[in-house]
Design a protein around this nucleic acid. Structure first.
Lengths: 131, 131, 131, 131
DNA sequence: GTGGTCTAGACCACG
DNA sequence: GTGGTCTAGACCACC
């Protein structure tokens, strides 16, 4: 990852908790290839200063990331992206597809036709695969 | 609607607030045709007893339903499904489609291919439109 | 569970973190049958006062309990012992047996004979099964 | 001890501190007979390089080993395995047996029966005593 | 009343 | 320097 990038951007006014915003963003950063396996994350203190957020909140986010297997933490050294990014990607893809199917089923229940769904998704299909 | 059915089923363990579960279910009941225009809803008191839920919670749900235009209240009579079900359906279909597109875009960002999405949705397309 | 009992006893001078002491004790309370399925735990505030411990620490313990499937939490209502105590017991028994075998293997590696192990465990075998 | 073996293998990701991992491994190497009385240990500097670990950490480990009576230091010469291996073995065996009994008692508290424990340990009993 | 999030600090062990 | 634990408070949503 190149220097000078801001890994995380947080909106305190958002209703979703800050720590969850952080987890979501990391999840996407890994999936999109911005972060590589075993890459070190910014230290809790540093990130807390950069974002103007309390260290405890950062720690809460990092702990959940670890619990989800996104990162591993070495006490006294720092936190690092999981070395098994592939496994994470697999789980993540399945989770996204499941959510999508659930959402589609809900739409059908609400009276949306298959044709309307296909039409709406046409633009999504066209987009280039990122990276 | 036939008698004996339970209009609302609530799961207190769910993380989504009870009052929101109620609104969600009403939304779906209307969209799927279970409830018709101007049909009367169970009274707050009755529902509170049936579900074993605090009356304040029921009241909050009904208030939000009214605020969203799902129902209208007649003082001293009760609450009734909006008479303009068609308008609601339009809004609802758009909302569901938007959510679906958002989910699909998120899946694409996570590395899911258009083909995988289409394959996953195939079953949903095949299902008969309810009602 | 009878009233007047003190569910948790914490030793702040112990090197194992307070929140982990709490989790350990709950694990044992459930396994030994002191707590029953769906029984409510003391509220975080109340326990925090009883034990003279910061609410945040209690919360940390409760969150880990939930993550381990020991309890489920209903926001605004309280925390409750898991309704599937049997499943927990199964996992717990296996975990304890695994740890025991590991410890025994380590003893063997250290030169302890099978006879010595059997002799040492004789007293444990004799103890009555609790409850 | 034959040359070419790596006496210590350290896993920085492990939650147990590195210096403690080193002490644990030395303890086991002596008990299992890999290291003999008065045998010389690798120098701190050399070990630090081999394992890619901070010299301070190695020093801390060696200091604790000495404090526990596992090794003795000869200024300007190096560190050596204690000459009274027998005494160490006695202490070690007792420590292992105590830990084992503690684990077994904990298992009993968790509802494991004496029969289950005996069955689980059967394989351990059968294994040939190493050395 | 309940749990959930967040802030602003402190002290510790490890490397 | 790093993460881990803990305290003492605050405010919020839900019931």
């Amino acid at each position: 990852m190149k220097r000078g990038d801001r890994l995380f951007i947080v909106n305190p006014r958002n209703k979703t908790p800050i720590y969850e915003q952080l987890v979501d963003q990391l999840r996407q950063q890994i999936a999109s290839g911005v972060l590589c396996a075993d890459e070190m994350l910014p230290s809790m203190r540093q990130l807390s200063i950069e974002l103007g957020i309390n260290p405890n909140t950062i720690q809460k986010a990092y702990r959940q990331m670890e619990q989800e297997g996104l990162i591993y933490t070495v006490s006294g050294r720092g936190c690092f992206v999981t070395d098994d990014v592939a496994a994470f990607m697999q789980k993540q893809k399945k989770a996204r597809l499941d959510a999508l199917v659930r959402e589609a089923a809900r739409a059908r229940e609400m009276g949306v036709t298959a044709e309307e769904i296909q039409a709406a998704l046409r633009d999504v299909y066209k987009e280039e695969k990122p990276c």
